[in-house]
Amino acid sequence: MNAVARESLPARAGLGLKPEHYGHVLEARPDVGFFEVHAENYMGAGGPPHRYLEAVASLYPLSLHGVGLSIGAAGPLDTAHLRRLRELIDRYRPQSFSEHLAWSTHDTGFLNDLLPLPYTPETLARVSEHVDEAQQAIGRQLLLENPSTYLLFTESTIDEIDFLEAVAARTGCGLLLDVNNVMVSCVNHRLDPAAYIDRFPVERVGEIHLAGYDETVDGAGDRLLIDAHGSPVKTDVMALYDLTLARAGPLPTLIEWDNDVPAFPTLHAEAVRVDALLAGQAARRNHLKRAG
């Protein structure tokens, strides 16, 4: 239990580490719970990315987030990519490693998007094999993230939450709960986001993601939310997040802002907002404990 605790991210707000903020972070050392990086941006041989990541990882807990493993692919995992991930994990010893329930590679190459898959016994078996293989290859547990989706599959027979829970039960992986993705998918598929959170196996969650979505309409004029990572977290997602905390208790929470990255103070203000919610939940819990 001690080992797990030492290896965990703190239940605080974390931020994505962006190259434009390297210098500021090292000089100002802002009070941020942890930093997260996309693994694929640190797979070059050397140079400033590694130099800065070494420095930042010596000061802050680190979360490594993969965007290219393609765990939801029908085809085999890329063993060269698994080796690269292993090297990064051995080098930086991140407190968390996470990837997506999605696919991005195909015969034609890397498609650079997180694409959806049907939820069936066949895909459940494939995804579970891939998670097993990945955890073996990298020598640690991974957290699997719920996707944001814009379409559904007629052949899906398993509910998304049941699918994620089954993968976790079979492989021992943890889950990353992206609350913005919950809002995006639930609005897009006319589901109740609060009911999704109510049913989610929060005891398996090792990290939460928050981000800003974009909004448009589809061909029928229905609301269509898009996972955009280019703006502040929307009010409804913050409320859903607070609901998540009320159920799950305080959890490490990353604010994702990957496009049109603002100046650091704007990002940090988002972290402060999230830290306040986390502190509020922690205080309520302590109060309940004392009262009980």
Binding site: L151, L152, F153, T216, G219
Partner: peptide
Amino acid sequence: PGLTGARGTADEARFAVYRNNVHVGL
């Protein structure tokens, strides 16, 4: 084939989000 949505049909505009993501990302 095999795509659908809450209205029981697959919407072009929704699939276009994926097409657009690939192009915009690259």
